[in-house]
């Protein structure tokens, strides 16, 4: 099977001796929506930098749709579109020119480049701004411009490094919708993000990287199964007059009538509600205290830090 991205024993040591990647390996299947998660300095950007030829690797192999970066670089690059974390276009150029010029770097004839640019600028809501210098765009529009630019040569694999950083909720949702659409059309997508609810909402498979090593690389469903405990917040309206007794379910009640309960995987929510009902406690709403993936992510990273420090 040919993977969209195949990384084997990838290592990177910078000139100052810092070992950013310690031999990571991972596969991303064709058509996947994949998240690469990790704290700052974990090695995410270095990995994506190597894949996109912006960083020289120290050792290892990278293949994009079977094309090795060392032996078949042109084909590998043609199959890849990159949306970096930082704005990296000429702020004084017009939006349309930026996208068309990028297509030209891939050898795309001008007519086709203009049609593709129009298509993606329209889909990303930037067509009305096509003649504006890029510096006149808002932050969200600049992010969408980089996505249009990355797609203009129709790559099979799209890599997005923090695509929704600093973007308002409405725009974030519209970007999610756009990415889901192009993924449904067959494009493989890899993203890094600090918003773990983003990874949970969009991605089918997730790798967690920390200190240059892959800690987890599995499906989102499998990953969430590893979550042993979740904390829920229940709105009881007012604080009950009597002290609550939920048995072996740890709970904390604050003055606003908000009850926090820690539910182990072996305990069902039915048990919790049976115990609340037995004490005639009404529940008006309920939510998880933190994003599930966030809890798991923090657990893994904290555990890894403890192991490395030890």
């Amino acid at each position: 099977m040919t993977y969209a991205l195949e990384i084997r024993n990838l290592k990177k040591t910078y000139g100052n001796g810092f070992e950013a990647l310690k031999g990571i390996s991972l596969n991303v299947g064709q058509g996947d929506f994949f998240a690469l998660l990790g704290p700052n300095g974990a090695g995410k950007s270095t990995t994506l930098g190597i894949v996109s030829s912006l960083v020289n690797k120290s050792a290892g192999e990278v293949r994009i749709f079977g094309h090795d970066l060392d032996t078949d670089l042109v084909a590998a690059k043609k199959a890849l579109g990159v949306v970096p974390q930082e704005f990296n276009f000429n702020q004084f150029e017009k939006v349309f020119d930026i996208v068309v010029t990028q297509a030209g770097y891939y050898g795309m004839p001008l007519g086709q480049a203009r049609r593709n640019a129009e298509r993606y600028l329209r889909e990303l809501g930037l067509w009305d701004k096509r003649n504006e210098p890029a510096r006149m765009l808002s932050g969200g529009m600049k992010r969408r411009l980089m996505i249009a630019r990355a797609l203009v040569h129709d790559p099979g694999l799209l890599i997005l490094d923090e695509p929704t950083a600093g973007v308002d909720i409405e725009l974030r949702r519209s970007l999610w919708s756009f990415l889901q659409d192009i993924n449904a059309q067959g494009k493989t997508i890899i993203l890094t993000t600090h918003y773990l609810e983003e990874a949970e909402a969009l991605c089918r498979n997730i790798a967690i990287i920390d200190r240059g090593q892959i800690l987890e690389n599995t499906s989102k469903i499998e990953l969430l199964r590893k979550l042993h405990r979740e904390t829920y917040v229940l709105d009881l309206g007012t604080k009950p007059e009597r002290a609550l007794d939920l048995g072996d379910i740890p709970c904390r009640l604050n003055d606003d009538g908000l009850l926090e309960v820690d539910i182990e995987r072996r305990v069902t929510l039915n048990t919790l509600f049976e115990r609340l009902s037995a004490q005639n406690i009404q529940v008006y709403s309920m939510r998880t205290k933190a994003n599930r993936l966030e809890e798991l992510f923090l657990d893994l990273v904290t555990q890894n830090k403890a192991e490395v420090d030890a």
């Binding site: 996109s52 912006l54 690059k77 043609k78 990159v82 990028q102 770097y105 050898g107």
Partner: peptide, 17 residues
């Protein structure tokens, strides 16, 4: 140099040119 400074050089580096 402006391309390097603004990181626009990455537009070319990621491409197969």
């Amino acid at each position: 140099f402006s391309m390097k400074f603004q990181h626009c050089i990455e537009e070319i580096l990621v491409s197969p040119v």
